[in-house]
Write a protein that binds this DNA or RNA. Sequence first.
RNA 1: GGCCCCGUCGCCAAGUGGUAAGGCAGAGGUCUGCAAAACCUUUAUCACCAGUUCGAAUCUGGUCGGGGCCUCCA
Length: 482
Amino acid sequence: MSLRLYNTLTGTKEPFTPLEPGKVGMYVCGVTVYDYCHIGHARANIVFDIVYRYLKYSGYDVTYVRNYTDVDDKIIQRANERGINSTALSEEFIRAFDADMAALGLEKPTIEPKATEHIEDIIALVQKLIDAGKAYAVDGDVYFAVQSFDDYLKLSKRNLDDMQAGARIAPGEKKRNPMDFALWKAAKPEEPSWPSPWGEGRPGWHIECSAMSTRYLGESFDIHGGGKDLVFPHHENEIAQSEAASGKPFVKYWIHNGFVNVNQEKMSKSLGNFFTIRDILQQYDPEVVRFFILSAHYRSPIDFSDQNLKEARHGLTRFYEGLHAAAQVLAQCDIDTSVEANEGRELKERFQSAMDDDFNTAQAIGFLFDGVRNMNRLMSEKKFRKKKDKVAEVNALYHTLLELGGVVGIFGSEPEAWLERQKMAALADMDISAEEIEEKIAARLQARRDKDFARSDAIRDELEERGILLLDSAEGTSWKIK
RNA sequence: GGCCCCGUCGCCAAGUGGUAAGGCAGAGGUCUGCAAAACCUUUAUCACCAGUUCGAAUCUGGUCGGGGCCUCCA
């Protein structure tokens, strides 16, 4: 089966056929850099990171472009509030964004252009639209005339008459139609600006994405993504600008990710339920955050809550414990690679069929859970190490799990180190130290040697009350957080 | 008001015409000096109503409930 994806433009799942066989051009709207990124940005970027990884895994040569919007009303306003220039502000938050994305384990896009470095492209595009009669200049502003573009609102499936009925022209704007939108804004005093045929000014919000995507991917390309909230007006306006200028279809597949809610409510600053990526990573491992996001389909809303994150951590722990056990056992076995192993191959096929179905990561993760259970089941069989065929299956499952996890950006850590890190992080919030636990373990070991099981159990019970579980094994006693 | 989405086991979450994946939590069991992990067994007819169909969680209509976009927003 080959990849199918849900296209916002047509409202259906479609087979994915790139414009040029074997190659994919993908543009994703990045962030406006005036503040730290929140969990919603994390989701959007992780979703498209997975799309990028999976397309590459499927054999496509992918050009992934994700922009920085570094000139904008909010940036100017924030810079003024802080008394610094807007370039300094945007550079600060570009660095912060890069650090956050790196911390979340995202791959770097092929190209990460900035709006301010493409002013010439933007001006050329605006001029082209004016020349074509699709846009008009008024006192240094330039507006796109929506009525000149018949397909306007085809993405968001709205009706222009209805929209106009409720639309208002803001004071200071000189639009012919309330729905017209700015391509170029005349500079106000103290604002960053560039010379243009219409006077000093700066680009409107939407035009930069049309200019930059065309610059790097051409006038028509395969995939354009972003959050659901960008469908209107941002992406609608991009289509209008680009198609009015080129006369060609702009984008073949539009992909939009769903929102993040916090404790069932929409996340917003006014509700005070706003979490930055930095806040979250203080508390949760980056892979846990990714695993959590993977656990739901990318178009569904997802509820960010402490309980859900803890469940995600539980789930990931199950994988890492299984991978750890398998690595240890396999290291002590003779692995006969000539023995045919079907489990790994079947797991891979199932995983791919889920991902091919509009990136159904929730289903794919379910299959990975099946894989780890099969692996554990085989390992728990009696005399497992002497059964060549079973060892070969476990070996295949182990490597397949690592490979497939890599496709969605999980299982990238060394299991023992990962488990240890989770343990120590949790211990930091408890009123017991690793040293104290080790002392108790030593005391219990002596009691066990003396066959004083009452005392041994008393130590176990005491630690358990304090949240520590002791684990006995042939190699000795270790511990974990209850 | 316009457009759109959702309502599946205690919780999270797949499934879009053939009779309900998976995870967490729960119960019982195997293993263990005791425990943990692991493994096995076990827990749903899909908000409600009416239709279409041999057959529907899945299609149509309606009701109730929740959410989003329509101004900046991932």
